[in-house]
Every structure is written in C-alpha cells, then in structure tokens.
C-alpha cells in the first residue's frame, strides 16, 4: 500500500510539471505581452527596453529554464499588471472557486445518487424513463446557455436572485445550479448503470437468499459495490468542476480562479496564467491521487494483498 501511494505521488509531480511545460510554450505562441502594456505608438527602443527588463528577449529555452527553477521554489513572478505576487493573487481567488465547486459537487451527489439508485430499482418504469430522458437533456445543455437562462428567469424576470458577483450565500445559488447540472446528469446516469450492473450479480442473489430485505439489499449491498466506480467518476468530475468552472465563473462574474485565468489570458498576464495553471493542475492531480487511495480503500481486492 505504501509503495502504491509513493508511486502515485510521483505521478502527481510529473503531471503538474507536464501541464506547466505545455502551457508555458503554448502561451508563448500567442506572442509576448510587452506590446499590450505599452501605448500603441511607443517607440521601438522603449519596447525593446521593456522586453529586456522582463527577460522576454532571451531565447525561449533560457526563459523556460529560468521559469522552472523559480517555479520549484514557488516563485511564479509578479503580475505584469499589478506587480503583486502572481501565486498570491491566484491563491486569494482559490477559496471562491472551491466554494462553488464543492457546493456544486455536494448538490450533484445529493440529487444524483438517490435518483440513480431509484431509477435502477424501478428500471423501465415511467419514473425511470423520465429520469433517463432528463439526464440526457442535462448532459447536452451547454453551461453558458443554462447560466444565461437562469439569469434571465430568476434575475431579470422574477428578480429574486442576483445575476452575478460573490459574497453572500444568495449569490451562490445560480452558479451552483449551473455548475451542478451537468454533474447531476452524469452522476445519475452513471449511478443507475452501475447499480443495474451490480443488481444482476450472483452475490446480490446470495444476499437475497439469506433473507436480506430489498431496501437493505440496495442501500447496503448494491450501493457499496457501485460506489467503487462512482468514486472514480466523482473524482474526475471534481477536477473538472474546479478547473472547468471557468465559463460559469465568467457568466456569473464569480471571483474565482477560473475567471481570473480567463482575464489574465486576455491581458497576456503570463505569470498569473502560469500560476493559475499550476494551482489547477496540482489540485486536479491531487484529487485523482486521493481518489485512487479512496478507491483502494473501498475495494479490498486492491487494499488487501
């Protein structure tokens, strides 16, 4: 088990490193940021001077080496715009992103698991059919559209909820719903099919043959077996929720990392982009790492050798 943990931890480091490297070179393809920070009619010498000051005139590999050596010390440079520590800015936005992602995840799980279980138990009934239909719709609706739709109804028409911004719990309702919709659909379908799969198993028949009542059969035995694949999916999706909340954050002006990343990319504020990617990649990898350990925990065939 310890071997397993160490091996998976090394993978985390490799994944984060690769993500940073790819993004580092990709954003350089978009050109260097100096022009954006100087007036359009700035003389050539001034631009050159500025590039030299920031180090953008050096060969790319030198810049990369420089970036890596400071990054491993946690130094991603300063924001080109505000001259504040880039990592610090990103970290200050992290709680908002977490808040949104976690509440969306919790909401999704609270709705999806009971719904999926019930759907599987009542398979092929009207309830199940409607449920499956809704999940198909839920997965197909793009989040910016759903977000705008919710803003239209609840903020513009009914005027009961704010259309954007952060701060109070009321501000969280619409973005959480928007972000959770896709996961609800995905988790419900997945729970349903995992449960159907498990309910057909010989060991469920064995439990029934021992006189276990239906409710206990489903809630204790079948659900526990279904949790193994569900945990993996949830972990993957938490990563997606954290990193992929960009659109929702932008639509609702939610002050999280996603929106910051988007704005910084527009401004070519590269240090912040890289620091943001670092944080998101790190979270993503760590979540997967934790999921694997959790997976091993619920699946004794991995845990107990």
């Amino acid at each position: 088990m310890l071997d397993f943990i160490i091996k998976r931890f090394l993978q985390v480091i490799v994944v984060v490193f690769l993500a940073l490297t790819v993004v580092f070179f990709l954003i350089r393809l978009a050109g260097d940021p100096t022009t954006l920070f100087l007036p359009p009619d700035a003389p050539r010498e001034q631009i050159e001077e500025y590039r030299e000051l920031l180090g953008y005139n050096r060969p790319l590999y030198v810049q990369y080496g420089d970036f890596v050596s400071s990054a491993v010390q946690g130094d991603f440079g300063e924001s080109l715009r505000s001259q504040e520590d880039a990592l610090g800015i990103v970290l200050s936005r992290l709680p908002a992103t977490f808040q949104l992602a976690i509440s969306a995840l919790v909401l999704a799980l609270l709705i999806a698991i009971p719904l999926g279980v019930l759907s599987a138990y009542k398979r092929n009934t009207v309830f199940d059919r409607i449920g499956v239909g809704l999940t198909v719709v839920g997965q197909a609706v793009p989040s910016f559209w759903l977000g705008l739709l919710l803003i239209f109804f609840f903020a513009a028409q009914l005027k009961v909820l704010p259309s954007g911004g952060g701060g109070t719990p009321v501000h969280m309702i619409l973005p959480t719903l928007t972000l959770a919709a896709y996961s609800v659909a995905r988790f419900t379908r997945f729970t349903r099919s995992a449960m159907l799969d498990v309910l057909r198993k010989d060991y469920i028949r064995t439990a029934k043959a021992s006189g276990v009542p239906t409710m206990r059969l489903i809630m204790r035995y079948a659900l526990r077996n279904s949790l193994i694949p569900i945990i993996t999916l949830v972990a993957l999706d938490l990563g997606v929720l954290l990193g992929g909340a960009v659109i929702t954050e932008v639509v609702f002006s939610w002050p999280g990392v996603g929106r910051l990343l988007m704005q910084s990319l527009m401004n070519r504020d590269f240090p912040i982009v890289l620091a943001g990617v670092f944080i998101i990649a790190l979270i993503y990898a760590i979540i997967n790492f934790v999921a694997d350990i959790l997976y091993a925990y619920v699946n004794p065939q991995i845990r107990v050798k």
Partner: peptide
C-alpha cells in the same frame, strides 16, 4: 423473506462469484 435463508437455504453453482467482494 422470512423463509429464505431460514427454513430453506441454497448453495449456488458459482462459488467464485456468489460472495460479495467488498
């Protein structure tokens, strides 16, 4: 349900898959 596993019980054909792995 009160009879199953109590008054009548059954041993299945497939010992490898009839026990719950978790």
């Amino acid at each position: 349900r009160k009879i199953r596993g109590n008054e009548i019980s059954m041993i299945f054909q497939e010992p490898m898959t009839s026990l719950n792995p978790v």
